[in-house]
């Protein structure tokens, strides 16, 4: 009797599960149809394909694209480097260093990037007498400094979170072997913290890519600037928007590929790595030894 009730009720639950799944599929399918239809309509009626493929706009977008790639590569490397030091500052045993790092993070996460860019681009040159500021082409350096300082704060917090997630036993074990705190951080804690923080850092670096679109307001000739220019000349937003969309996706998707690659590389001895080694070895002589115990 009891078993019957149970099987009946679990049958009911199964039915509901299936229903929810079907509703989800219908919603997702409907969404794809709606967006796909809209996109097809725009691409067929709104986009001027002659303009889209004209060498003039292609060249201007290509120039902007390579500029953005350069800005992203430099700001990325600088902000991740800065972030490592900010993260280390946050866990410093010196209270002063810890507070300075915290204050830095609070300021750069707590104010808009656009504000920071204005401070650096418009504000800083005014600290010199008129005509004395030594950098005539200040837009690009200002952009890189702004992106680096802003994203250094986010990367710093990701690194600190990554360090916090390393069990205390790791530091204790390293120190018990006679390593200094700095050596233990470098050899034992940071490599693990880096792995823990990678996903969050990758996320932030993708946001950095998109943040370059703000640079249009400090006269950096990046992708959005080209769009604004073409739109105001041609009175045709959709054609250049196709370029904008594709170019940003090219950068952000390469960035995720890079992050995925880095994550796989630090997947020490877990299943995927084991399989990687197994297939790399062909028959996998020594790699399957770990399974036996």
């Amino acid at each position: 009797m009891a078993t019957q009730t149970e099987s009946e009720s679990s049958g009911g639950v199964l039915m509901r599960d299936r229903l929810v799944k079907r509703v989800g599929e219908a919603a997702a399918g409907g969404f794809v149809l709606a967006i796909g239809g809209l996109l097809a309509w725009i691409l067929s009626t709104q986009v001027d394909y002659e303009l889209l493929s004209s060498p003039l706009i292609a060249r201007r977008f290509a120039e902007a694209f390579f500029l953005v790639v350069q800005i992203v590569v430099i700001s990325s490397l600088l902000s991740v480097t800065l972030g490592v030091f900010v993260g280390l500052g946050r866990i410093s045993t010196s209270r002063i260093t810890g507070r300075i790092a915290k204050g830095y993070v609070e300021f750069f996460r707590g104010t808009p990037l656009l504000f920071q860019l204005f401070v650096i681009y418009f504000g800083v040159p005014r600290l010199w007498a008129t005509g004395e500021f030594p950098f005539p082409d200040w837009a690009l350096p200002a952009a890189i400094i702004g992106l680096t300082l802003n994203h250094g704060a986010y990367v710093g917090e990701a690194i600190r979170g990554g360090i916090d997630a390393v069990p205390d036993g790791q530091m204790e074990a390293a120190r018990s072997l006679g390593m200094s705190r700095v050596m233990a951080l470098r050899e034992v804690v940071l490599p693990q913290a880096w792995r823990n923080a990678l996903a969050a850092i990758g996320n932030d670096q993708i946001i950095l890519v998109k943040d370059t679109s703000l640079l249009t307001v400090i006269a950096v000739p990046e992708i959005m600037s080209v769009f604004r220019n073409i739109n105001s000349n041609q009175l045709d937003p959709w054609t250049p928007l196709v370029w904008v969309c594709v170019l940003y996706l090219v950068i952000t998707m390469s960035m995720s590929q890079l992050v995925n690659g880095l994550e796989r590389r630090s997947d020490w001895g877990s299943d995927s790595r084991m399989f990687g080694r197994l297939s790399g070895l062909g028959s996998g002589g020594d790699a399957d030894g770990g399974e036996e115990a």
Binding site: G178, Q192, W268
Partner: peptide, 18 residues
């Protein structure tokens, strides 16, 4: 500490090293 070997309940091996 170099002269005192310590072994812990939770092993604490370094997971990123063989």
């Amino acid at each position: 500490r170099q002269q005192i070997g310590m072994v812990f309940q939770s092993f604490n091996l370094f997971p990123h090293k063989t």
